[in-house]
Each structure stands twice: as C-alpha cells, then as structure tokens.
Design a binder for these strands. Structure first.
Lengths: 339, 339
DNA sequence: AAGGGGTGTCGAAGCGCTTCGACTGGGGTA
DNA sequence: TACCCCAGTCGAAGCGCTTCGACACCCCTT
C-alpha cells in the first residue's frame, strides 16, 4: 500500500503538504500542487480511511438503519436506501447498513465507536424506543418518518395526513359519498406506525369534513384475506363506490378480487392508491394515485444530515406535500349537478 | 469519549493490558481481567473503530455490493442483504452498502482505502466487468452468482441449471408433454445474467432429455405484456399444459391472465414457479415451486468470506442444490399408464 | 542454592493521517 | 533601507489503538 509519505517523497515535499493539497485547507502554489497531483496519480495513492478518520475525528460514513418489519413494503424501502446511498456518495460519504435486529444498542455501538459520524433512521414509529437513544447520541441524526414528539430531532416524511385527505377529496369531488380505506396489515397499526396512523387520520377527518361516509379496515397481504376483507366490507356497506388503498402489495390481487366480485374499475368502483408511480402505471387500468417520493425524501434526509454535520441549522420537521395524479381508476359518480 | 488509557488508569494497569483483556490474545490473570472488565463497564468504554482498524490493519467491515438492475426482484435482493448483515454481525463485522452505480471503481475505492477488508458481490453476470477487478484486489471477496470463468474466485449460487431441470422433470413425471418457460424480462438475458441463462439451459436440456416440447420466452412485468406473451404462446403452441415461471413479480398477474383466458390452474394448466416459498404459498392455488434459499446463500457467503479472512481455504464454486415443493398448482396430465 | 521455564504485565514503537505552530523568503510599504 | 506581512512550506505532535520484545516474579527442578 502506498502511503502519504511515499507520495511526499516522490513529489519532493513534506507529507503535510500532500495532505493540504488533497484537502485544500491551506493555499499551495500551483507549481507544487500540480507536482503532488502528478505523484498521487503516478503512484495510485489512496488515503487510508482509518488513519484519516482517526486523525480528523471524521469517518465519512453514515449509518442507515433499515428495519425490515413485517408488513412493510420492501421495494419502497430499497428506493429510500438507494437514494440515501447515492446522495451520500455525492457528499463523499459511505453508508453502513444496520438492520433493526440490533435495536437501540446497535445505534449506540456504531455511534460510540466512531464507526459512523451521523445516522439516518427509517420507518420510525410513533413511540419509538430508538428515539430517546438518538437524542442522547453525540452525533447528528435524521429520521425518515417521525414520532409523536419530534422535539430536538430532525424528521422528514411525506405528509400522510394530507395524503389520506387528498384521496378523500378527489373521490368526493367526483361525487362519491361512501368511501373505504383499505389499510395496512393490522400489525402495522398495532405497533403504532406513523404513516399508517396518519393516513387513517387524514382519511377520517376529510370524510367528516366532506360529509361522506368513511369506513376503514386493515388488510393483510394474502389473496384470501383480501377477498374476505373486501366481501365483508361490501356486505356491511353495499353503497361504497370509492376505495383508498395504502398497501402496495395488495394492489394486484385487489384488482383481481374486484373483478371476481363483478365490480368494474372504475365504472362500479373508483380506486385511489398511495403507492409508487411506476406501480400505479403498471396496473390495468392505471391507478389514480398519491405517489411516495422516496428518492426525494432520501436525498433530503442526507442533505439535512450533511448540513448538521457542518454545523448548519435544519428544520425539526419537514413534511413533503403529497401530489395526487388522476389516472384511469377513478371516475365521477352519481349526478354531480345536484352535489 | 473514554479511551483505553482512561480504562487503564481506572483499573491501575497498562493500556496494553486492557487491550489484551479485550482481545484475549495473551493470558491475563483472573484478578486483573475482572478488574479491567469492571472498569470497562464502569466507564462505558467503547474502543474507537478507526484507531483499532489503523493499528490492526483490520476494519471489521465487509462491503456488500447490491446492483439494483432493472428486472431484478427487489425483495429477494433484500433477503440476501439481510442475511449478509445478520451473519456478518455474528462474526463481529459490519456491512458497508455499495450500489452498482459506483461500478468497478467503487470496489477499488473501498478496498484500497482499507475502508473494508472483504467484499460480497451480488448479482454477478456471466461476463462481469467487476470480476477482473476483484481478482486483482488485495483482499478476499465472495460472489453471489458466478461468471463464466470462476477461476481464482469464490462463488456461491443456487444451482439454477438443476432448478430448471427439476421443473421440467416434475412436469414430465406428471405426464405433461409440452412445456413453456416464462422467463425474465429480455433485458436480463441481454446482459447475460447467470441465473436466467442457466435456468434456461437446464430447462432446455431437461426437455430434450425427457423428449418433451420445451419452448421459452422472456416476459416483461406489465400486465399487458404478460397477457400478450401468454396469448402468443398459447396460440403458437396450443398443446402446452405445463408452465415454468422464473419471474417472481409476474406470478400474481399471470394467474389472473390464465383465469381470463379460461385456463384453470392446475386442471388445464400446471404451473411451477422458481420463487420464495412465502410467495408460492400466498397464491391461490398455492404454487408448486423451487425455492430460492436466499438466507442460506447469504449466510454461506459471509461464512466463506470470514474463513478466507482467517486464511482458510474455501471451494471456488458452491452450488446449492434446489428443492422442489409440490403444491396445488400442478397435477397429472393425460394417461400416465401409457407414458 | 542455582538455574530454567512459565506466566503475567509493562513500555514503547508504530499504524497513516491531519493539523498546529513556526519558519522562510519575496514583495510591498514607509 | 528597514520593516512588516503574507503566501507557501515544513516538522512534529498527536489521534487511540495493537503488538512486540523485555522483564519481573514465582515455582520447579536438579
């Protein structure tokens, strides 16, 4: 392995000069700088990451905590992860992958051993046991999702309350008077997952505000469960004509179930999904949907983190406003002129 | 931050003694050892990862390279990744996440800067540009998947040739004489992806060996593409009664398409999938399938890597034998007694 | 009683880098 | 001409750990 001393010797300068050329932290004459750069190239020098981290107290590594909990939609998680890695690289940082199995202790471990110098934590629950740990940690962190009490934290999330409300408004605008929310598996609600909880809140509040019926039910991922849930729903509330789905994996089977039950989409049943755009566009018919801007949120998370690392200020809570794209799965219902 | 010197002072010993207590590399008297351990606890000492890495020339970090290529099935990738992280932690290692965007340069970067001390590379193509780089790198690596020329490498993969053959054998044993392989999107074949290529080979060879018709076609992920592909297939070969699917995302829509086309599964059409068990069990009917043992392969990859790090020998190519589980999507065809 | 072999501990020398203070010399100012 | 300042460079001191060689001491052996 070639060291900074080798480069210095090759270029005929001191090691510290090489360091300053590389970091740009002191002015170096053009002549010297170019000579050093040529030596770096010629020798194929790569600074040793550990030595650098030890001396500078900066590892240039971010931790990314991905809890692979049951009921979470994996492709969306990966979109976040990819965005985080890509953006981190843009700021010359690498990403250490932590899974949830390690729990709060894992966070302490990587933080206190200086393995990383900041953390991105995904899929935060309303009462998350990692939150108090993050508050105490001697390094910055950013949460994707947010707990009940976001004080002293930096959180970024899609505004799921608004997302739920948008779906209701869209359907109500089209004249639908009876709506249902087909939610996530009940395990997700039971562990007080923010996004599920908040979508539900937005849905219920908007339904009330618009004076329409808004019923909600969790829904598991198996075909049988979907079939049963929908049958139950339609027998309890036969007048339902608008469905909101926040549960990406069930979208395919759900369309199938509706077909089986003889409900055409959108003629008999309008459908709005909260899912990635490409998923919505892949269905037949294409789905009206509120998209989940995973890439944007992941980017934003890393940018905030870097800002904090550099001593800057960032807002405690950033809510990304949702956008609804109308496609082929929703259509007007009833006599709009009387509405 | 509390350092090893603080612990040494607190325990009334030399820093090196603390180090030896922690690493166990020299014998320490029970008395001293316990005193040191108490001090470690009392002060909440965590060794600094960079300092340790610098002094010992070992970062205790593995790189995991996940190429998120188009057409790959993300949940399966994540299963691999999770297994890798979990097993790495078992061996006291952490995992640095690299995406494919970085390409071969990324491998060199993390390796030559001593950021990691070994690499796990996923989704290897037959002619993979990362392979020559890996061969030259001054540190061990393990590939999940394997290139044409696996010499000097360590590769682990499901035996996809056998997987393809198993599917054919299963269907042929049931009396089916005309089979089709519904493959991955054509992009996957075009970039010479090992697992797709090899499944195809196994399928074709087995069909020949069994003297049955075996046609194959790529298949994209959209509903329309699936519908069109299957219609074309059945109009070209109306006598097909057995389908092999190696393309997890299309399984749901495919069942739907077959229903639309009036082909009952398994009465009119037997179906074998190559997919994760939980996906197979979630369908109606449950699918006969060859499972993808992601966890086992991920584990194995890390174990081999650790063995190599410790100077041990591991086989160049480990092929995990596939197992086929018969479920409700396949049934006998024709008069078996005459076969 | 002298010698030998463990065992347990210490001190010091790095690992490869960053960073601080100090030094040099040339150009501008008075 | 004397002075000062600044740009440009160097040397040395760490960063916190591991590891090597040395050494002290005790228990056996002869």
């Amino acid at each position: 392995m070639v060291t900074i001393a080798d480069v210095a010797r090759h270029a005929g300068v001191a090691a510290s000069t090489v360091s300053y050329v590389l970091s740009g932290k002191r002015t170096i004459s053009t002549d010297t700088r170019e000579r050093v750069q040529r030596s770096v190239h010629a020798l194929g020098y790569r600074p040793n990451a550990s030595a650098r981290a030890l001396a500078s107290q900066r590892s240039n590594v971010l931790a990314l905590v991905i809890p692979l909990r049951t009921g979470m939609h994996v492709p969306v998680m990966m979109q976040f992860a990819t965005a985080v890695v890509t953006t981190a690289r843009r700021f010359d940082h690498d990403v250490l992958l932590l899974t949830a199995d390690e729990g709060p202790d894992g966070l302490e471990r990587v933080a206190q051993s200086s393995l990383v110098d900041a953390l991105v934590v995904m899929d935060v629950e309303l009462h998350d046991e990692r939150v108090p740990v993050l508050r105490e940690l001697p390094m910055p962190s950013v949460l994707i999702g947010y707990p009940d009490d976001a004080d002293g934290l930096t959180c970024i999330d899609l505004d799921f309350v608004a997302a739920g409300a948008h779906c209701v408004d869209h359907l109500a605008d089209l004249g639908h008077r009876s709506l249902a929310l087909l939610g996530t598996p009940s395990a997700v609600y039971e562990r007080q997952t923010g996004f599920a909880q908040r979508t539900l809140t937005g849905f219920v509040e908007a339904a009330e505000r618009r004076g329409v019926l808004g019923v909600e039910t969790p829904c598991e991922h198996t075909f049988d469960a979907i079939l049963h849930t929908v049958e139950q729903l339609l027998s309890d509330h036969p007048d339902i004509t608008g469905l909101v789905v926040q549960n990406e994996p069930i979208i395919g089977p759900l369309l199938d179930v509706l077909r089986r039950l003889g409900r055409r989409v959108p003629e008999d049943m309008s459908l709005v999904a909260i899912c990635a755009d490409d998923v919505a566009e892949r269905q037949v018919p294409q789905l009206s949907s509120v998209s989940i801007p995973a890439e944007r949120i992941g980017d934003q998370a890393v940018e905030s983190l870097i800002t904090k690392l550099e001593g800057g200020e960032v807002p405690s809570l950033t809510l990304v406003p949702p956008t609804l794209t109308a496609r082929g799965s929703t259509c007007p219902h009833g006599d709009l002129t009387t509405a």
